[in-house]
Design a protein around this nucleic acid. Structure first.
Lengths: 335, 335
DNA sequence: CTGAAAGCGCTTACAG
DNA sequence: CTGAAAGCGCTTACAG
């Protein structure tokens, strides 16, 4: 079949040139949208390209032009967490959206956080991509940090190492957001405010804990692991430790959903007995029986901003080293 | 700084050759582990490579060797669903695990299911990857199907089009598994068995519904959208329609978790009043208050098998067109 | 506006 | 076992 043969030996620019009767250089110009191509030649070139179903070979292009038109999304994170967390989904969505309007393609590099391997280093330095987006709640990852000299890198979330003053990143102010959330609970009349945290090896979890602590001034916190089940477990633990608690700041909506279940089990009414405020404003916030009052963070905008920032770096433009996007409290039923 | 300069102009094979005092050809042989290299030359080459921190340029390599050593993971799926579904997490984990032992890298291509764009076609046909893994519950995606002539492709899940007898895929026998699950409920004494399904544009959801129907012989089903919230909603609907139902086959553990919540709301005891069997044996199965009896499917093994199959195709080996992995019922508390 | 030519950084027959 | 040379399929000064 023709289809088969065509697939086996993809047409080259040389063949397009022959087919259209112009030079290889000119076909290349047509391909790259050069302005200095006369209308009729442009037309002839395009026609030949269509007729042959020509797709430029990216390796050749990359080698000659010295850029790949590809960016990597590096995720030094356990796949289970990466996929389970709506935060990542929103980030990736934002990144994809922004990149779709560009000529760049996205490449995924799941790397285990324990051993961010030589493989990823080779991949990034081996000229596969022009730049990289790194999303991870966890590690600063020395390997990657050491590479930001080698290529444009944009992080999602602040660096683990607060002394790092070179990394470019996009984030929200988790500490301030937690302060706001906890104050909101205070204003609503709460006296004994607990918190369910994320894993404390993640900057976002730490910052939210700090914010809560600065207002609540208590030590009533439990780790909910950023999962629904963990949220329920942590809530039960908190109720055991402090049966009189009357409010809780839960550091993610998913955990808050679990917490609501635990509160119900224990016969606590929300918000009458215990006020609950979540974090994210993800779909989970409105998925339960009680609509969550929560802190909205624009995760998709974070992703989009990361991508846009990288594109600007690649275009040689100046960018801000840290970009903090706003959060806001969304009042619903739970507090 | 030296580091900066080095980063700016990555060393080429030419420089390694100069540094080690052997020819470019020989350095290439060292790089590619050719057996016909004398020990001392091998040593000299390696030393020079280390000293210079040399990483081969992939584009040049790809162009010359005519293969990329990269495979694409194509996901014609909404990011929200892709990230929310533990099934995908397990699949990707299996794929990564298998690929980690090979020299191939993974590239992610999230494509919108509605318009699987020209972009992805160009990407795949433009010589970016040697083959592709396609995971999606949904569409057969004509675009991709039409490309399986052009490059090795392995699907996760059976093709939507049952008449498709060319696609290579790995799956479980969803229909048989649903039959087993429903029979199990019958054997346990259930008389009126409902089911909560996934979205019926997905083959896995359709097959599980069919399997259930063939045993239950009823029409008591509701769409739970493969989400926890949807599972709860569907369960409530079923209870409204058939207050006397005494068992339910829920087509995913996540939905089953939602169903358990709804049953509790309505004061039904599990398994005494209503027996519940889930599907997946994902972490969700043991995350709730009542441990789920469920159908275990080895999703990570599906992913690993997909990757292994693709690697074999790339190595020119013969592979089976369809590989069906076994499922089994895991008995816990809910049924 | 267009073409001939050099060059991107590798691999791989080919000859030795 | 090793090297010189051709070639992979493009882009891009350069000259016209």
């Amino acid at each position: 079949m023709t289809g088969d043969a065509a697939a086996r030996t993809a047409p080259t620019i040389e063949q397009v040139a022959a087919e259209s009767g112009v030079s290889r250089s000119t076909v290349s110009r047509v391909l790259n949208g050069s302005p200095k191509v006369s209308p009729d030649v442009l037309e002839a070139g395009r026609a030949a390209i269509d007729r042959l179903g020509y797709v430029p070979n990216r390796a050749a292009r990359t080698l000659a032009a010295r850029r790949t038109m590809a960016v990597a999304l590096v995720v030094p994170e356990d796949p289970r967490r990466f996929f389970g967390d709506p935060y990542f989904a929103a980030i990736v969505q934002g990144i994809s959206r922004e990149l779709d309007d560009s000529d760049y393609v996205l490449t995924l590099q799941l790397v285990s956080p324990e051993q961010p391997s030589e493989k990823i280093r080779r991949y990034l330095l081996g000229g596969n991509v022009d730049g990289a987006l790194v999303v991870s709640h966890h590690t600063g990852d020395r390997l990657l940090t050491s590479m930001s000299e080698g290529m444009p890198l944009v992080y999602g979330g602040r660096p683990v190492d607060r002394a790092d003053d070179r990394s470019v990143y996009v984030d929200v102010d988790n500490l301030a957001a937690a302060v706001d959330a906890t104050r909101y609970l205070v204003e609503r009349g709460a006296r004994r405010i607990a918190t369910v945290t994320g894993p404390l090896d993640m900057p976002a979890a730490v910052d939210r804990l700090e914010g809560w602590r600065s207002v609540a001034g208590s030590d009533l916190h439990a780790d909910g692991d950023f999962s629904m089940v963990g949220g329920a477990r942590a809530m039960r633990e908190l109720l055991d430790r402090a049966p009189d608690l009357d409010a809780v700041f839960v550091a993610s909506d998913l955990m808050a959903l679990g917490a609501l279940g635990a509160l119900k089990e224990r016969g606590r009414r929300v918000p009458e007995d215990v006020a609950v405020i979540g974090f994210d404003d993800s779909p989970a916030a409105t998925g339960g029986e009680v609509a969550l009052t929560t802190v909205r963070q624009p995760s998709d905008a974070v992703g989009a901003r990361m991508a846009r920032t990288l594109l600007r770096m690649l275009a040689g433009e100046q960018v801000e080293r840290e970009q903090i996007l706003p959060t806001e409290i969304v009042v619903r039923e739970s507090a």
